[in-house]
Design a protein around this nucleic acid. Structure first.
Lengths: 308, 308
DNA sequence: TAACATTATCGGCAATGCCTATTAAAAAAT
DNA sequence: ATTTTTTAATAGGCATTGCCGATAATGTTA
């Protein structure tokens, strides 16, 4: 019968492309790894490693098998994690990623409550943009993510947390500074300072204003950058509510926040984890803890469908 | 690291509920199985087997783990099958299930062609109703199925084969025996002889005629039964085209076939297999071979959406 | 309690996985 | 072209593991 260990050797070799390094990554000697892979090839009756070529490359079949093997190794790890977790629920180390436009503000707001309710859960926090977050989630590098929920996808499970309203933040010198509200149609073509491409908030804002990416001259690396730019002059940007709250409570005086109406704008924040993740109970507990602290806004908010 | 072998022991014990039988199924001695399971429990640090109870029952955690283990063992088998298949494509033993209202007629029509085009593929044919077919497909007892395609589902891959037209078959004594066509609205509430519940054709026919299951007095076990009942008197039933063709060419004289129009009625026949199945190339080849022989009917056929 | 069925334990054997040391081969550098 | 260096394959030996049969312990049933 196949051995998971051998399969993991193949996965390592596929990823590192080097017998020695693969062996090191698997904590075995190079001859061991070589030998076991040879055994695996005989078991399967197939050439897995391209021979004759200069570099270590898997054959076509080998790559397909490595891919399947990777999935199996991941499942094995999750099975072990599940067993561990079942001994002491809501403990352990949760590798959690949050998108940058949310991370600092969300943690500031909910961190204390989470720690109080889940004292035995260590959260290893990562800040990742949506695309990389999804990749790492699927490959098992992280256990869960908090992000603007994308379309449901096979193998991933989600849990909606909050419809976060979006505001228009303008500097005091901006022509709209006195406005009480703006409609979506008024926003069309407006000149906004946005985050760099890759941030889902930038995508959503662009979509909202029907802008092409080309038309944007200034791109901030973080919401805090946008804050300084808007605060300093006559710029405008789209601000999610949590960051707005944070700025206000930190004494930001130079930005006016204008509600966007017709329709109200919001983004759907939620959790995402692998379907089989052992940490799902933790995710649910986190969800409960965070929901306690987040404002419960009116339900009539309409989200702009966001395709990622 | 976990061993697939040990996991398979757990799966066997879960399914057979008996150490001796499980050991036998795994081709090892009972002490071996006992010992390895004990080792597994220590590895995972969890009680897997309910102790103190009379019967062998897995703990709650044990069942969850057995379920995950089963999925992994299945994947291991498919990985091996894939390796085997990659050596000699389009060979081996394909365990194929076909729904009863299709099986005999489809095989009669396409069997020869399939054997000619895929001489090295042994097809192990099963006749299963939709529900059981799906279960066996998911659990790995069969590799592929030909059926009326249900909604797409995670983990399964499909390949549409044919829109099979549905006809109304009536006995010569039936009031409609002289009709040239019937519309769907005329069928509403009509008294039909149908297959037993569980057959998807019966479901579709019921839906088509807006009947409740209660209202049906006679239920045939197979299409051939329906044939005799209709042929003998003044009954009527819904007949898929392939069986109609077969009956005609076998000299059935006492049934009139009336087209159903507004809209035309058909059912979507197709292949279904696990997403990761090593036999997918075989399925594609089968599809090609069968499509050659099946009539290419007009594309304007509208299928009745069928939820299973 | 006796008879039976089922699971756990023991001792020993064979196979496996692993290591270090070494050799062979391929790349890179001179 | 030759040497040096890097990298993979092979060889020999040790420790562990998985396996078996025999047997003991346990639980079930009559």
């Amino acid at each position: 019968m196949l051995s998971l260990k051998d399969l993991s050797y193949l996965v390592a070799l596929d990823e590192l492309g080097h017998f020695g390094k693969a062996a090191q990554a698997c904590y075995v000697s190079q001859p061991t790894l070589s030998g076991q892979l040879k055994k695996l090839q005989i078991q399967l009756g197939v050439e897995l490693i391209e021979k004759g070529s200069k570099k270590v490359i898997l054959t076509h079949v080998g790559q397909e098998i490595a891919q399947r093997a990777k999935a199996m190794v991941l499942q094995a790890n999750e099975l072990e994690a599940f067993a561990r977790a079942s001994k002491k629920p809501l403990t352990g180390r949760l590798r959690l990623a949050i998108i940058p436009s949310l991370a600092p503000y969300l943690m500031a707001k909910t961190g204390a409550c989470v720690n109080a309710l889940l004292p035995d859960l260590t959260i290893e926090l990562h800040e990742l943009e949506t695309h990389e977050l999804l990749r790492q989630l699927r490959s098992g590098e992280i256990d869960a993510g908090i992000l603007v929920l994308p379309q449901p996808q096979a193998g991933l499970r989600h849990l909606s947390l909050w419809q976060e309203p979006l505001w228009l933040g303008v500097g005091h010198g901006h022509p709209w500074a006195q406005k009480v509200q703006v409609t979506q149609s008024q926003l069309a073509g407006a000149e906004l300072i946005l985050l760099k491409e890759g941030h889902c908030l930038a995508d959503q804002a662009q979509q909202l204003c029907q802008l092409k990416s080309q038309s944007q001259a200034f791109r901030g690396a973080s919401l805090e950058t946008l804050r300084y730019m808007v605060s300093a002059g006559n710029g405008a940007t789209i601000v999610p509510q949590l960051s707005m709250d944070a700025w206000i409570s930190h004494g930001e005086q130079n930005i006016t926040y204008i509600p966007i109406v017709s329709p109200k704008q919001a983004r759907e924040i939620g959790f995402l984890a692998r379907s089989g993740s052992a940490y799902w109970p933790c995710v649910e507990a986190l969800h409960g803890a965070m929901a306690k602290v987040l404002p419960k806004n009116a339900v009539d908010t309409q989200t702009v469908p966001l395709v990622i």
